[in-house]
Design a binder for these strands. Structure first.
Lengths: 104, 104
DNA sequence: TCTTTATATGGCAATATTGCCATGTTACCA
DNA sequence: TGGTAACATGGCAATATTGCCATATAAAGA
C-alpha cells in the first residue's frame, strides 16, 4: 500500500464500529455520565463496558474526570454530531435506494 | 442493551475501519475509478480489493457503474468529506493533548 | 488499618475479520 | 462457439475483536 498512513483515522473509525460504543457516544452527546451509569445503559458486564470505554478513550473520542470513586466521561469533540449525521444520511440513502432497483 | 438499533450505523462505521478501505474512499472523493485502478492503488490481491469494495458497497458508501468489462465506483454521498474532517479533527486534538499531560 | 465501592486490567474461549488462492461469472471479440 | 479480460465469490488459515470471570487498583469511610 503506497499511501499516507491512516493508522489514527482507522483507530477512530474502529472505535465507532460497535453498537455498545455507538450507544455510549450517542448518550454522552447529551451529558457526561459515570461508568456505573454507562454500564447500566449498555447492559453488559462492568469489565466489558470498561474495556469499551478504554477503546473510546484511546481513540481520543472521550475523556474522563475523576470525582471521588466515580469517573465521569464526556465527548472530547462536538464534531461527533456531524459524524452521526453523516452516518444517518448514508443509512437513509440506502433505504431509499433499496426501494428502487439495485444499482450494483 | 435497551437501545435503538444501531445495526446500519455500525455497518457503515465498520466499513470505514480499515486502512485500505479508508484509502479507497479518500481517493474516490476526487474521481470515480475502476476496480483495476483501485487494485493497483491498494496494492493487494484483486480478490482482496474486490472484497473491500463489496464491504463499502454493502454499507452503501459507494456504488458501481458498468462500462464494458470495467466497473467504475464512486462515492454515493458527498457527506463523507465531513466524516474525514471530523476524523482529522479528533486525530489533531489527540496530538495536542498528548503534548500536555494525560487526562485519564 | 480494614472494608467497601467504583473502575480498570489480565486471561482466555468464542466469534469475526482479513487476505490469499482457486474458481465462477459476465462481457467482448475473433 | 471459443478465448480472453475484468470483476466477484468460495474456501480456508492467520489474525483481531469481543465478553465474561477473576482480580488488581484507588478512593473513601469506619
Amino acid at each position: 500500500m503506497k499511501q499516507k498512513n491512516y493508522t489514527s483515522r482507522v483507530q477512530v473509525a474502529k472505535a465507532l464500529a460497535h453498537p455498545s460504543r455507538m450507544l455510549i457516544l450517542d448518550t454522552l452527546q447529551e451529558k457526561e455520565l459515570r461508568v456505573s451509569e454507562l454500564t447500566e445503559l449498555v447492559g453488559a458486564d462492568q469489565s466489558t463496558v470498561s474495556k469499551h470505554i478504554a477503546i473510546l478513550r484511546n481513540a481520543g473520542l472521550i475523556s474522563g474526570r475523576k470525582e471521588g470513586l466515580s469517573v465521569f466521561y464526556k465527548l472530547t469533540c462536538p464534531c461527533i454530531q456531524s459524524f452521526f449525521d453523516c452516518l444517518e444520511q448514508v443509512v437513509r440513502k440506502n433505504i431509499e435506494n433499496s426501494k428502487e432497483e439495485i444499482t450494483v
